[in-house]
Amino acid sequence: MRNTEIRVGQIAGTLREPDDEPAAALVIHPATATPERFYTNFATYLADNGVATVTYDYRGTGRSGSPRANRRIGMREWIEQDVPAVAEWTAARFPGLPLLAVGHSVGGHALALGYGTAGLSGFALIAAHAASARAIPDPAERRRVRLVLHVLGPALAAVLGYVPARRLGLGEDIPAAAMTQWGSWARRDGYFFDDPSMRAAARAATVTPPVLAIGFTDDKWATPEAIDTLTGHLTAARVERRTYSPADGDVATIGHHGFLRRGVRDTLWPELLTWLQKQVR
């Protein structure tokens, strides 16, 4: 396997290529406050199985610039600009190869709205859902999320120009605008589907590649109902839904991020790989 650092404008990423000619090229579009390095093991697994794989950090996160210097970069910019930019770079780097994608959480939101989907043979959504805080079933988690998204996060963003998400237990630090937008959408029952400026429902209805939407029984955020709210708008696509329990992965927990950890490498990753391979045969 060959690793190459890449740049797509300000966006920093990594291309992992198999030793032999790849059968397909795939981009992993990351979750909010989740650094590129988190996806290393999964990307390596895909490359070892013949899929050239790109990982990256959104602008204002990780290696793609400091959150303070990119304070005006919001989730909308990640969705509408960063995701398509990396997808287009990958398509240009591998002309003629089948193209695939995996979107984790907000990365899946972008794909579900049709950003970065041009020419895709199929894509998988991992823990991607309509992320209304009101839809979180666990009362304690719902209160915690509202405290972070609606009180602590915006206050820290206003003072610092970015959100120290690591100190809040949310992962990597993120730009102020990303927190503001996240909190605004989370107040709405339909998340960004209730933001008229996003035209989210109309965009989702134009998506046509096959979709595999994966959720987990112990994910406090992306519940089956919240995932269905998102995928229900994919009216022109063939959508397959799978819900895994920790027992299915032979692990104690999976939650919102555990599917991308190597603990389920031998139990759950092969099922996703098989689905992806079927889309390009």
Rank of each mutant, 00 (worst) to 15 (best):
R68P: 04
D82I: 03
G107Y: 02
A69P: 06
D82S: 11
E141M: 13
R143C: 15
R143M: 14
G108E: 05
G74A: 09
G74V: 01
L111A: 05
A140V: 15
A69F: 07
W78C: 00
L125A: 01
A101C: 07
P137T: 14
P137E: 13
S132C: 09
F123L: 14
G119E: 07
L100D: 02
L111K: 14
G116E: 11
R134T: 15
M75R: 06
Y115H: 14
Y115L: 08
E88F: 05
T90K: 11
R142C: 08
R71N: 05
A124I: 01
R76C: 11
P84S: 10
S121A: 12
R146A: 14
G116K: 02
R146D: 13
G103N: 03
R142V: 11
A69G: 10
H104N: 13
V83C: 13
A101H: 02
R59P: 01
A69W: 08
R63P: 01
G108T: 05
L99M: 09
E88L: 12
A130P: 02
G122M: 03
L113A: 14
S64A: 13
D138R: 03
P67Q: 10
V106Q: 04
T117V: 15
L99H: 11
A127Q: 06
V145Y: 01
H109F: 14
A101W: 04
G65V: 12
S132V: 07
F123A: 05
V86M: 02
W89K: 00
R144T: 08
D138S: 14
V83E: 08
H129C: 14
L111H: 00
L147M: 10
L100E: 08
